[in-house]
C-alpha cells in the first residue's frame, strides 16, 4: 500500500487545544451563536483517507478557512489538499460535506470548496462537491458511503 500513497511523508502540524469552556457557555439564559470555531471543531477530527492522521494534523482544514455567518445561515469551508495532485481531494471534500450535513442544523447553506490555487483540478472538484444531486448519488453507493463513514469514525488506535 505504501507505493500507492500520494504523499508518503507529509508535514505534521500541531493540533489546537480543546475549546475553552467559558462561564457564559454554561449559563442557561445566554444564547450561543454558531461560529467558525464550532464548525471547525466538527471537521477537524475527520480522518485522512490515507494516513492515520486527522485533517487538522495535515493542515487540510484550518480554523481560518472556515467562514460562518450565523444570521444569514451560511457556512463556507475551504480545504487544502497536501499536494496539488492529490487524488483523494474529492473524497476529503465529500467527507467534510457529509459530516456537516449530519451535524449542522438544516437552516445553513453549506459550501465546501478547495482553497483557491491549491489543487490541479480545483474547478472540477468544486463543481462535483457543489452538485447536490451528485453528492446524493454518491451516498447511495454503499461502497463509497462505507469509505466516507470510515473517515468519519473515531480511530481506535493512536
Amino acid at each position: 500500500m505504501s507505493s500507492r500513497l500520494d504523499n508518503a511523508n507529509p508535514i505534521i502540524y500541531q493540533s489546537q487545544e480543546e475549546r475553552e469552556i467559558l462561564p457564559e457557555d454554561e449559563d442557561d439564559n445566554i444564547e450561543d451563536k454558531v461560529d467558525s470555531r464550532e464548525v471547525f471543531d466538527l471537521i477537524r477530527c475527520i480522518n485522512d483517507p490515507e494516513h492515520p492522521l486527522t485533517l487538522e494534523e495535515l493542515n487540510v482544514v484550518e480554523n481560518d478557512r472556515v467562514h460562518v455567518n450565523n444570521e444569514e445561515n451560511r457556512v463556507q469551508v475551504e480545504f487544502t489538499p497536501t499536494i496539488p495532485h492529490c487524488s483523494m481531494a474529492t473524497l476529503i471534500g465529500l467527507s467534510i460535506r457529509v459530516k456537516l450535513l449530519r451535524s449542522l442544523p438544516s437552516r445553513f447553506k453549506v459550501d465546501v470548496v478547495i482553497t483557491p490555487g491549491s489543487h490541479a483540478s480545483e474547478d472540477a472538484v468544486n463543481k462535483q462537491l457543489a452538485d447536490k444531486e451528485r453528492v446524493a448519488a454518491a451516498l447511495e453507493n454503499s461502497h463509497l458511503l462505507e469509505v466516507v463513514n470510515q473517515c468519519l469514525s473515531k480511530r481506535k488506535n493512536g
Partner: peptide
C-alpha cells in the same frame, strides 16, 4: 435534527456527536 439548533453550544456539540454516532451504526 431539531436539537442540532439548540441555543447552547455545548448541547449542540453533544447532539452532533450523538447524531453522527447513530449515522455510523453499521460502520462502527
Amino acid at each position: 435534527e431539531s436539537v442540532l439548533d439548540d441555543k447552547k453550544r455545548l448541547v449542540r456539540k453533544e447532539a452532533a456527536g450523538a447524531r453522527n454516532e447513530w449515522f455510523l451504526l453499521e460502520t462502527a
